[in-house]
Amino acid sequence: MPSLSPDQIAFFSAGIAHQIGSVTPEGRPCLVRGLAADIEDDGRVVVLLSGASGFEVLEAIRATRWIALNMTSPATYRSMMLKGSDAVAAAAGASFRGLLETRHAAFRTNLIPLGFTLEYTSSWYSLPDEDIVAIRFTPTLAWNQTPGPGAGQALPLGG
C-alpha cells in the first residue's frame, strides 16, 4: 500500500485549509470544506467535516467512493491534493473533538497575519459533536498544487 512521506504527514498539522471533492455516478462534481485531517495507523487518511455542510459530498462518496482532498497552507500557499477511490464515511462524534480543536487552533494562527479575526473560522468549526463526520480513504495519488511552474504534477507517495 502506498504511504505518505514524513514531510507529507507533517503537513497535516501545519495549520492548513481542507477542501473535499467527490463526484456522483452521473459525473456531477461536488465539494465541501473539511475541518481537520490526520493519518491513521493503517496508513489511511481521515478527514473530518460537518455532516450538515457536506451532505452532497457524503452522498457522492457513498455512491462512488471517490475523494480528492486538497490541503493548502494559508501561510505559505503550499498545496497538495490526495486522491483515493475507497473512501468511506462514518459519524465520528466527540472522539475527534480534540483533533478538530488542535487543527482549528493551528489554522486560525495562520490566518491572523492575513487580517482575519479569531472568530472568523469559528463559523466553520462551531459544530455539535453529533454533526462531526469522518471520511477515511487510502491515498493512491498525490498532486503538487503549489502555484507556479510544476503545479498540477503528480507527487511520489512514500519515500
Binding site: 459525473g27 465539494l31 498545496s79 477511490s85 498532486w143
Partner: peptide
C-alpha cells in the same frame, strides 16, 4: 471531473 470520472480539487 476527468474523462475517467475521477474528481480533481484545486484552489
Amino acid at each position: 471531473v476527468g474523462e475517467d470520472g475521477t474528481p480533481h480539487t484545486n484552489y
